[in-house]
């Protein structure tokens, strides 16, 4: 089965910023991404958990994009417009995908 090189971008972002990030990605023509809820964790601002939270002010989400390497810079510029000042983590890893025509 043929495999293709790609980049996997994972953005952990505050819940309050999620729609802004996905809007920014859409406007940069990044239409494919997956949003996952994050259960909890710990960082510079201390430990946190999603249990019992009802406010969007304190939760986090993970947005995962698989993208062709030549489109990476456009995605990162769009993402950074939103995440630059906020709590979060952005990581990029090399990966491989099947069915490259979908990306």
């Amino acid at each position: 089965m043929q495999r293709h090189k790609a980049k996997r971008v994972e953005i952990i972002i505050e819940a309050a910023l999620l729609s802004r990030l996905t809007d920014s990605l859409q406007s940069a023509d990044v239409s494919g991404y997956t949003v996952l809820p994050v259960k909890g964790g710990s960082g510079r601002s201390g430990p946190w958990t999603r249990d019992g939270q009802i406010s969007r002010g304190s939760g986090m989400f993970a947005v995962i994009c698989l993208i062709r390497p030549e489109r990476l810079d456009g995605l990162l510029e769009a993402a950074f417009e939103v995440v630059e000042k906020h709590i979060g983590v952005v990581s990029i890893t090399d990966t491989e995908i099947l069915r490259a025509e979908r990306f």
Binding site: E14, A15, A16, L17, R20, I54, S55, R56, G57, S58, K85, H86, I87
Partner: peptide, 14 residues
């Protein structure tokens, strides 16, 4: 602790 924290995270992230 519901509406305002979310608004502050957007408007005053620092």
């Amino acid at each position: 602790y519901i509406a305002v924290p979310a608004a502050m995270r957007v408007a005053l992230p620092e």
